[in-house]
């Protein structure tokens, strides 16, 4: 099994205008996703949702500035880390990841020999 990070990029503006009902359905979706990963034979190793980019602070060469590192309409809003058999398997999982206002990026996690318990 290999680790992949699923980065969720979505339009933040759409999140700002969400109804409480929409939020709840999105929570439903993430719950259903968690179940789906296991059913697909993958393992959810971790994952977090992030505060909006208005709360972000960037540091370039020691210089601190307000805002995200890269300005874009579709910002990184959260991620999952999954263990999957191969990229196809990871993409299968990625396709099910809730991202109604954008999409996801699937990135293999660099296999570092120092990391323990990678299952190899």
């Amino acid at each position: 099994m290999s680790k992949y990070m699923i980065l969720i990029h979505e339009r933040e503006a759409d999140y700002a205008t969400m109804t409480p009902e929409g939020w709840q359905s999105l929570v439903d979706a993430h719950g259903a996703f968690t179940k789906a990963v296991a059913d697909l034979g993958g393992t959810l190793v971790g994952g977090e949702a992030l505060q909006p980019t208005t709360t972000a602070t960037s540091i370039r060469s020691g210089e601190v500035t307000d805002g995200p590192f890269v300005e874009s309409k579709e910002a990184l809003g959260g991620f999952y880390i999954v263990e999957a058999r191969d990229l196809d398997h990871a993409l299968e999982i990625g396709k099910l990841t809730p991202a109604p206002f954008g999409g996801v990026e699937v990135r293999p996690v660099l296999d570092s020999p120092a990391a323990s318990g990678s299952g190899r």
Partner: peptide, 17 residues
């Protein structure tokens, strides 16, 4: 499950506004 996830994705979009 897949259909549920697809359904929820559209539901969230439908619940905007």
């Amino acid at each position: 499950e897949r259909m549920i996830l697809e359904g929820l994705r559209h539901t969230v979009l439908g619940l905007q506004g």
